[in-house]
Design a protein around this nucleic acid. Structure first.
Lengths: 168, 168
DNA sequence: CCGCTGACTTCTGCAATCATAAGTCAGCTC
DNA sequence: GAGCTGACTTATGATTGCAGAAGTCAGCGG
């Protein structure tokens, strides 16, 4: 463990990846819409009904997530019906699955009633339950408290010994 | 893949683990405070300053997270100072790390500027970067689109063939 | 070319969230 | 026991988020 945390006040969180992710999809309704998308929902009315939100909220969130590239609007046509549009996950959106898995897993562990979790996600090949786990690039499992924080290339230092503190 | 998703409207999301997690820590400020806690912040003023939020918001969020059991208020005393209280992660709070790791990772991948991510989390033993990955109980890596949704013990069915639809 | 339907959008108003600034409080130092 | 300091709490007002209801719109069927 380095002493990077000792100088915590010396770096800015302006470009924090967690904060940026939350800017894009950090509201309750946006995350629930992403959950629904992973559960196979594709149509506007179904999103609103199944997430349990009003149409204005569904509209705003779907528009934002589409603009951010997590969802895409694709035309489809049922026989004898006019062309309609569905919202489906892009690669960028599908890559969001670990976030939802981690959220679901935490809720399964710490916020479930006696009956247990309502849903179980299983591996297609073997049927075993899927979990989000932490692993390092060397292939080791990383348990809680077995990690430390290091400076990355995008770290912005501020304060006394910083190059040029432009912003706060 | 079962046809569970076909009957999507037949089950309620009242006890959805994702939704429950978001009820507890689903706001932007709560998640950022949890991030700060993992970065080692423990004191009230530091939380407010480093997260970049006002004191009322910090106060409310810390109170909620403490009440929910993710943080605990512990007394400490610096020499020559009166007793003060610090907020530190409980086991329940530490178990939240996969959520933040997944959020950070998505931001690192999809929302970083040219300079790259500001922080890198490394494995204490080997120094390699830590990631959130999906794995099944049989030990297989689960890639995107290699999972399906199954009914869990807590699934609540509603509608025509449901036992007794009490709520909406 | 008219009515119907699913997919939105707009309107209205309420409730929650948040920052700024000012006020309170406890208890160690002196 | 008065002052000081960190840790909050309490106004106040702006902003955002949200629901419900009503309105718009496009295009297929008839």
């Amino acid at each position: 463990m380095t002493d990077l945390l000792q100088e915590r006040d010396a770096w800015s969180m302006a470009n924090c990846s967690v904060a940026r992710t939350l800017e894009i999809a950090g509201t309750r309704t946006a995350l629930l819409i992403m959950r629904e998308a992973f559960l196979g929902t594709r149509r506007f009315d179904d999103f609103a009904k199944r997430v349990g939100i009003g149409e204005p909220a569904a509209s705003a969130r779907l528009k934002e997530l589409t603009a951010a590239g997590l969802l895409e609007r694709v035309p489809y046509q049922e026989p004898g019906q006019r062309t309609r549009y569905a919202y489906q996950l892009t690669e960028k959106g599908r890559d969001f699955l670990p976030v939802l898995t981690a959220l679901r897993q935490w809720g399964d562990t710490w916020a479930t009633d006696e009956q247990g979790p309502p849903l179980v996600v299983r591996h297609r090949d073997c049927g075993a339950a899927v979990h989000a786990v932490l692993r390092c690039d060397d292939g080791h499992d990383v348990r809680l408290r077995e990690s430390y924080v290091d400076a990355g290339p995008g770290l912005i230092r501020v304060g006394p010994d910083a190059p040029e503190p432009d912003g706060a």
